[in-house]
Design a protein around this nucleic acid. Structure first.
Length: 560
RNA sequence: AGCCGAGUCGUCUAAUGGUAGGACAGUGGAUUCUGGUUCCAUACGUGAGGGUUCGACUCCUUCCUCGGCUGCCA
């Protein structure tokens, strides 16, 4: 495919290319996406998903979906279900390779026995506090546990009894016997198994001991025949351990490769923080359209293609970076521009009466569904004597570069007629509540034979045909591009944008919107991309603003 | 402080000893029945010093800055 050639060669791809050239692993490429089911997936995970599944696709390999479910106290089936839905929605397929680390618990147990027998693991009976004190610090070596040299027999016996549930949580711990003086703290006799008496979402109460990430993860990869185990930078310090556990049991050895996780401006990406936003009701749930979760982006109206393109565009590297969210929004608009149905919706209605238009007359006007896609066809829109236009589209005393309606000026109603404002009707407070206009019958369809130019074009909705709707305008969740750096003594929630959601009611939309499905990709002409929210009911439609259109007029005004 | 890692336009990312390029954001303009799209133009960068070389983003060296690591989380 010529498309393929344009894809950038990042450092992970170079490694794979070289491995293939050397016929390493028989030139196989097998990756995996290994989420822990303890939260919803976010756009950062999307980067990893696109990387892992994308690499497999590109090199004719495979990619597994594997749940790293080694900690029953934090994990839940709800998360498993949401993760499966999200990866699928993003457009990736793991075929029959849906795996769970918990399926390998027996194998892990046997590896642990093997390490004990080889004198490479021991049961420690220090408590958590004592272990911390023995660990040393970043600059000082640790001290060996007094239990470090228990006999193999004693270790075997104790470990067996740990497994059988004879001890309370925290009473004992199986540790690897490596080096308490290692400059890499991860190598100072790391924990392999801890006692946890919680019910696991898949294995129930079968196990009382659960393996730690460092001990289990390499084996998970090894068992599945993974060739390239791709993870984020913070595991770099753990790679010696990853290698150690695999080598000491003589198992097949995948290669761990670390890359920089995604950070985005104006949002947070840590699961812990996202969870807090949900649990403390700063947002309406994991799929709140302001959340950077896949579920939130989906509900917001993002397309999977736009997210995939974004992940391709940002590249893969090893340096910590924060991507401007404008780049994500660019990918979004680029995709939506090609596919969104153009419709007219008046968010802040201003009544317009066309005084010379016959009372009671209704004309059907033809509207293009998508100027970027001829195959999208056209539809009919009702036009009548009383319509609504946007309040912003009228100014009584306009500045010189205002192209829209003002007393005496003429504009085009998109797909309608040219109209000229003759007067503005005001209420007792002086607010403009209605416009009186005349139309030119010779401009039907929004075009004049005489070549006369009008600068402005407004969208509109026929008053008697309009449907009421609620429109939710979303903005960045945080007021600062870097909400991860909270001001002194303050929590990141202090940085939340109080205007991240503005709810507009009494909006007037085209009749066609009643029949469209939830999730439809729309452009409200001249305003932005929107999608129908699942909160819509027959009498009240609800739309989410996915992203606004670029607005050079707003820019001009702001410079004002 | 110890270990590991990373420093290229405002933000991402290419160039691996031979013209520092692309994207987003910015600016100016053209086109347009969306102040959208599209098109054209334009400004902006190799953390610092020293060394090797005809030639250094690239190699060597000293320094500086930033990030990660002291869970029985992943």
């Amino acid at each position: 495919m010529p498309d393929e050639e344009k894809k950038p060669v990042h450092f992970i791809k170079s490694i794979i290319l070289e491995d293939i050239a050397n016929n390493k692993n028989d030139a196989r490429v097998h990756t995996r996406f290994p989420p822990e089911p303890n939260g919803y997936l976010h756009i950062g995970h999307a980067k990893s998903i696109c990387l892992n599944f994308g690499l497999a696709q590109e090199f004719n390999g495979k990619c597994n979906l594997r749940f790293d479910d080694t900690n029953p106290s934090k994990e839940d089936q709800e998360y498993v279900d949401s993760i499966i839905e999200d990866v699928k929605w993003l457009g990736f397929d793991w075929e029959d390779r849906l795996f769970f680390a918990s399926d390998y618990f027996q194998q892990f147990y046997e590896y642990a026995i093997q390490l004990i027998k080889a004198g490479l693991a021991y049961v420690d009976s220090l408590n958590a506090d004592e272990i911390r004190q023995h660990r040393g610090t970043l600059t000082e070596p640790g001290k060996e546990s007094p239990y470090r040299n228990r006999s193999v027999e004693e270790n075997l016996d104790l470990f067996e009894r740990m497994k059988n549930g004879e001890f309370e949580e925290g009473a004992h711990l199986l540790r690897a016997k490596i080096d308490m003086a290692s400059p890499n703290i991860n190598m100072r006799d790391p924990a392999m198994y801890r006692i946890v008496k919680a019910s696991h979402h898949r294995t129930g109460n079968k196990w009382c001991i659960y393996p730690m990430y460092d001990f289990a993860h390499g084996y998970e990869d090894s068992i599945e025949g993974i060739t390239h185990s791709i993870c984020t930078l913070e595991f770099e310090d753990h790679r010696p351990l990853y290698d150690w556990f695999i080598e000491k049991v003589g198992a097949y050895h995948p290669q761990q490769i670390e890359f920089a996780r995604l950070n985005l401006t104006y949002t947070v990406m840590s699961k812990r923080k996202l969870k807090r936003l949900v649990e403390e009701k700063f947002v309406c749930g994991w799929d709140d359209p302001r959340m950077p979760t896949i579920a939130g982006l989906r509900r917001r109206g993002y397309t999977p293609e736009s997210i995939r393109n974004f992940c391709e565009m940002i590249g893969v590297g090893k340096s910590e970076s924060t991507i401007d969210i404008a780049m994500l929004e660019h990918c979004l608009r680029e995709d939506l521009n090609k596919r969104a149905l153009r419709v007219m919706a008046v968010l802040r209605p201003l009544k317009v009466t066309i005084t010379n238009y016959p009372e009671g007359q209704v004309e059907m006007m033809e509207a293009v569904n998508n100027p970027e896609d001829e195959s999208a066809g056209t539809r009919q829109i009702p036009f009548s004597r009383v319509i609504y236009i946007e309040q912003d589209d009228f100014m009584e005393n306009p500045p010189k570069n205002f192209f829209r309606l003002s007393p005496g000026s003429e504009i085009r109603l998109k797909h309608g007629y040219y109209i000229t404002c003759t007067s503005a009707v005001k209420d007792s407070d002086g607010n403009v509540v209605e416009l009186l206009c005349t139309y030119d019958p010779e401009t039907r369809g929004g075009w004049s034979e005489d070549g006369r130019k009008v600068k402005g074009t407004s969208h509109w909705v026929s008053a008697q045909h309009a449907i009421d709707a609620e429109v939710r305008l979303y903005d960045h969740l945080f007021t600062t591009p870097t909400p991860d750096v909270a001001p002194e003594g303050k929590d990141f929630t202090a940085l939340l944008n109080p205007d991240s959601l503005e709810v507009l009611t009494g909006c007037k939309v085209e009749p066609v919107l009643a029949d469209l499905p939830v999730g439809a990709y729309l452009q409200f002409l001249r305003q932005g991309y929107f999608t129908k929210d699942r909160d819509s009911v027959a009498g009240k439609l609800v739309f989410n603003r996915t992203v606004s259109l670029k607005d050079t007029w707003a820019k001009v005004q702001n410079k004002g």
